[in-house]
Simulated assay, not measured.
Amino acid sequence: MKRIPGSRCAVAITLLLTMAGESAAADPARGRDIAERWCSACHVVAPGQLRGSDTVPTFAQIGKSDKFDEAGLSVFLAAPHHSRMPNLSLTRSEIADLVAYIRATKP
């Protein structure tokens, strides 16, 4: 079994803790702000929203979908694969906030 040198191990642990801290600190309220600013032109992102495309799922539909768990949503938002979905270049923290909001919109 190979041993990882101490400095590499410390860096790896720091990165893991940082990523865990970001997801634990996800703020659905900030996620809603991001959704209203960047996503509401196409998606219905909140109850009472009057505009949105009927050709894309609502955030409530995405939030209750078994296809998109937190990890799946995070990966998708980091690098959208849909031709009509723009690459928003969101930070990991913004993605965590947006995912927290989407998951909170489950009916």
Rank of each mutant, 00 (worst) to 15 (best):
D54E: 11
L98N: 03
V11W: 13
A26N: 02
G63W: 02
F76W: 11
P28R: 00
H82P: 06
A24N: 13
A60R: 15
T105C: 00
A96W: 07
T105M: 02
A46T: 14
S53F: 00
A20W: 11
I102R: 00
I13K: 13
E22I: 15
T14N: 10
T58A: 14
K106S: 03
S53A: 08
A26D: 01
E70I: 05
T14E: 11
L50Y: 07
G6R: 14
K64R: 15
R51T: 09
R32Y: 08
A41P: 07
V11S: 09
A26P: 04
S74C: 03
S83M: 11
V75G: 03
S65T: 04
L88H: 02
A10V: 08
S40P: 03
L90W: 07
P107L: 00
G31E: 08
T55K: 15
S89V: 06
S83N: 11
A20P: 09
A12Y: 07
G6I: 10
P107W: 04
A25Q: 13
G52L: 00
G6D: 12
A100G: 04
A10E: 10
V75M: 09
G63N: 07
K2Y: 11
R84K: 12
R3T: 10
T58Q: 10
G21T: 14
E22A: 13
P5W: 04
A104I: 00
P28W: 04
S23W: 15
S74E: 11
E70N: 12
I4P: 03
T91Y: 07
D27G: 04
F68L: 04
A24F: 12
L73E: 00
V45S: 00
K64E: 15
I62S: 03
W38I: 02
G72D: 02
A25Y: 12
S53W: 03
I34R: 05
F76H: 14
A20V: 15
G21V: 06
E70L: 07
A104H: 02
R30F: 10
A60C: 09
K67Q: 13
L98W: 01
I62Q: 04
H43S: 01
A25G: 09
V56K: 09
E94Y: 10
A20Y: 10
A100S: 01
I13L: 15
R84C: 04
T91F: 06
A96E: 13
M19H: 13
S23L: 12
P5L: 01
S23D: 11
R92I: 06
H82N: 14
S74M: 08
L15I: 15
S53N: 06
C39K: 01
A10P: 07
T58N: 08
G21P: 11
Q49L: 03
F76G: 01
A35P: 11
P47E: 15
D33S: 09
L50E: 15
D27E: 05
C42R: 00
L17D: 08
Q49W: 07
A100C: 06
A104M: 05
E36D: 10
G48R: 06
A12T: 09
